[in-house]
Nucleic acid binder design. Sequence first.
DNA 1: GTCTATAATTTGATAGAC
DNA 2: GTCTATCAAATTATAGAC
Lengths: 172, 172
Amino acid sequence: MTAPTRERILEAAERHVRAGGYNGFSFRDLATEIGIKSASVHYHFPSKETLVAELAARYRERFLVGLPAPSPAQPALPALRAAFRAALHRDGLMCLCGALANQTEVLPPPVATEARAFFEALLVWLDAGLTGSDVIRRQTALASLAQLEGAMLLARTLDDPRVFDDATAELA
Amino acid sequence: MTAPTRERILEAAERHVRAGGYNGFSFRDLATEIGIKSASVHYHFPSKETLVAELAARYRERFLVGLPAPSPAQPALPALRAAFRAALHRDGLMCLCGALANQTEVLPPPVATEARAFFEALLVWLDAGLTGSDVIRRQTALASLAQLEGAMLLARTLDDPRVFDDATAELA
DNA sequence: GTCTATAATTTGATAGAC
DNA sequence: GTCTATCAAATTATAGAC
């Protein structure tokens, strides 16, 4: 009942990126953790760049699938807050794309592109679920997304998940 | 009129950490940039851990000195927003402690401690400048700090400094 | 204070056997 | 698919000459 190796690699890599960013782990770390050799990791993913780019794309897709369709019955901000909260509370780690976004300058371009796409997708989703003028919707979307990512960051540094709840109470 | 070597090392290191976090640069990078050898960097700072911990402490002290004393005439939130905005616009980089906070798990403990102290100090400063009940002041302080750090992160990933202004317009 | 030289380890990656 | 073996480069750090 163990997941296929490729999947276990992605899971281990996700934990590591969310904990320490792109440069915070090695192929050997992943290999040791799942009980294989680093050469076997390279069999599944030719390079680190490839692995993390796929990881970020997968994270974005899954995150978006988990969001409800925008509707008056399901206000956008509480729904997005719940999604971020779940990501933090499930394993106490940063948002994967937030962890990457923080180091844009040292990321391989394909990885930076994927991380950026996560935020652009969320801004589009938010815009569709908000009301008001173009300017107001844009500012609200950016402000909310900033607050959610920042709240995860604070909760991580201060090592207290309740910090997230307090920092985003107004969005609930 | 060139700054002393020790100071130039700190400046180069600050740029690198703010761009790519703790693992995003090496002593050789710093050395090459300022025109010396990496062994000379070790003369000024025995280890990378020492260098970055001092860097974070210095960043915190300077940041706090740049903030006005809390007073009714100088509302806290716009003042803090201006300070973060200046840090971003001066060189288009992340907050140093935000860049570190994002990788708490892989930081040497002394560095993680310094990064954390930055946020604790700002929360104390904010609390003194806000009004309302204990709970309200705490939530407002956390929410504002989260929004400011997140806005810097978004501005970096989306590569557009105006994103910060839009994401924090309500704090002005 | 800065250099050359170098040690010890880690890293991303490849070749080829099984 | 996974392994052993290995590589070239990079990284943190030290010793000792100048």
